[in-house]
Structure formats: C-alpha cells, structure tokens
Computed example of a mutant assay.
Amino acid sequence: MSEFKRIPPEQAQALRESGAVVVDVRDPQSFAMGHITGSRHLDNHSLHDFISAADLDAPLIVSCYHGNSSQSAAAYLVSQGFSEVYSLDGGFELWRATYPEETAQATPE
C-alpha cells in the first residue's frame, strides 16, 4: 500500500480486533477527555520515538476529531515507511457515537 485508506468505524474496529495499532493526533486535552480504548496519543513530541519503535508493517489507524487531520497524518506516516495506514472517517466523534463502550478516558498520572 503506497497510500493510506479512509475507513469507517466498523472496519477500524475489525482491524483493532486483529491487532492494528490506533494513534490519536488530537490535542492532549481532548485525548485525556476521551479516546479510543487502547489508542496512543501522538504529537510532534512523541512522533519520532513512535516511528523509531514501530513495526512499519503492522496495520496503523489514525484518528482525529472528525477525520480531516488524520488524513494528513496518515499521509505523513506512509511517507515515513508505514505500509498499511488507515484514516478513521468521522474521527473520534463518529467512533464515540458508534462504539461508546470502546471509549476511554486518560487516567491521571
């Protein structure tokens, strides 16, 4: 795959169940208020470490607010060598409406 694919929450959930990594590119406060269970927050500070440690061949789902910013982030991750990248259509907002039981809040450190 040389480009990312846009997928609906149902397809993202199936990929999650088969081991896909989910990253969230929203701001830290929004991530703390709610995110896809098991997702990892990704920003400019954590991006390099994430790419360095990641399995570039593992499926990767990128989430944002509504599915717009995730497309830019997904394109960037493809350019960094990830081979199977997906952008979550509708973003976290549609995910939360579709799978409220698969939504978590960050725990205070």
Rank of each mutant, 00 (worst) to 15 (best):
D49G: 12
P9R: 09
S70K: 04
H45K: 11
E102S: 14
V25F: 08
V21L: 11
F50R: 04
E10K: 14
D57S: 14
S30M: 08
Y99G: 00
E109C: 01
E17W: 02
L94I: 12
D57H: 14
L47N: 04
A20H: 10
E17G: 12
P100W: 11
L56K: 15
F82C: 02
V62Y: 01
L56S: 07
I7G: 11
A58P: 02
L56R: 13
V85N: 02
M33C: 02
E93G: 03
Y99I: 01
L77Y: 00
A104C: 03
Q71D: 07
Q71F: 06
E3F: 06
S2C: 05
A106W: 03
A32P: 03
E10Q: 15
D55E: 12
E17L: 14
A75H: 13
R40N: 03
W95K: 05
S18H: 12
S46F: 07
V23N: 03
I7V: 15
V21K: 12
N44R: 12
G90T: 11
T107K: 13
S46T: 15
T103Q: 01
Q13G: 00
Y65T: 07
D24W: 05
E109V: 09
S39F: 04
V62R: 01
Q29E: 14
S39T: 07
E109H: 06
W95M: 09
L94R: 15
D55G: 06
P108F: 03
A58Q: 14
L60Y: 02
R40H: 08
G91A: 13
V22S: 05
G90K: 02
A106S: 15
Q29F: 04
F82L: 09
A32G: 11
K5C: 05
A20F: 09
S70L: 06
A20P: 10
E17C: 04
H66T: 12
Q105V: 11
D27L: 10
S63V: 15
P9C: 10
A104R: 08
A54C: 07
V62H: 01
Q105A: 06
